[in-house]
Structures are given as structure tokens and as C-alpha cells.
Amino acid sequence: MAADQFACTAAVVEETPDAVVVSNLGVASYVLAEVADRDRNFYLWGSMGSTTATGVGVAHGTDEQVTVLTGDGSLTMSLGVCSTVVTADQPNLTVVCFDNGIYGTTGGQPTPSIDFAAAAEAQGLSATSVADDDAFAAAYADAVDHEGPSLIECAVEPTDPEARPTFDFPHIPRRVRDSLNE
């Protein structure tokens, strides 16, 4: 069984409408753009493996909720970043790893199979694993309430979204910054 990445992304935006959402290059950003093109969507167009650390930096400078939507391939590339999330210890940071089992953005090649919740816990990061839409929504609400940072591993069906965020990359962080400064 696996969740729907669109439904889960929509649940994030509904539960935390003011959150800065940092989205992994590729599918995670395309889905987010299709769900809602918000000012506080920090879409990445590159830097595979750096999505979570980008969120750590955002969470340092704001008290707003910061949610990272990363992918299984990207998190695998920098799995040790969970330790940095623990070091930074920001109560407003939630990391969601959409595990579709593939490098979806590059055509669907299989990713290594990793128990991300266990890998996060092994680094001291509180984590949970879900595989359907309702369980995700509940886990996300819990994670936002949780006093420290945490990770949700969410098994999702592969998807191939139509939407794209703006190709004007410098505009994306500028828009987030202006929104936070309002």
C-alpha cells in the first residue's frame, strides 16, 4: 500500500498554511506547484541531496513552521543530514521523505531500499513511517505539534505531474523572503 503524493502535499498545505515548504528538485516541487503555488514554496531546481539542510537554514531564522518535502533518492545522497537536523534541534522543522522507490525525476530508475525512519532514529531524530493518506495527515499534525524536529517517511505511488514551478530560480527565494518579511 502507498499514499498519494498529491493528497499528502495538499494535507501539508492545509494543516500548516503559513509554513515555508522547501521542496526537493523534480517531482516534489512539481507536485507542490500543482497543489498550490504559494509565496512560501521554496522550490529547488537543483542541489539534489541538499533539500533537508536548506530547510534547517530556513528554520534557524524564522519561528514559522518549516516543512521539507524531500525524496528517497535525495535523502539517500545525504542520509547523515538527519544528524544535522538533530544538532540544530529546531522545534519548527518537519522533514517529510516521499519514498516512491525510484529516482522519479530522471525516469524511474530504482533507488536503494532504505528504512528511513530507522536511519533517522539511529541518528537521534524522532521518526515515523506511513503508507496511506490518512495516516500521513495524522502523522504530519503530530509532527507539527512535536516539540523537536522530526521526520516522516511516507511511501507514495510514483507520479508524473504536469505542473512546473517558475523557471526564474532567483525569484523563488526572493518571494519566500518577501513573504516572511511582510
Binding site: H60, G61, V81, A88
Partner: peptide, 24 residues
């Protein structure tokens, strides 16, 4: 001054980049 030890320097660049959108 706040300091953050990272696991890999790429994360140091990414975290610094993220901080910019908050005005830091």
C-alpha cells in the same frame, strides 16, 4: 554568535542559503 556543525559541507552551504530567505 549562533554556530551550526553540519555533517557535510554541502549542508553548510544549503543551510546558509536557507537562512537568507528569513533575512539572516
Amino acid at each position: 554568535v549562533d554556530t551550526l556543525r553540519v555533517e557535510r559541507e554541502e549542508s553548510a552551504i544549503a543551510a546558509a542559503s536557507g537562512a537568507w530567505v528569513t533575512g539572516e
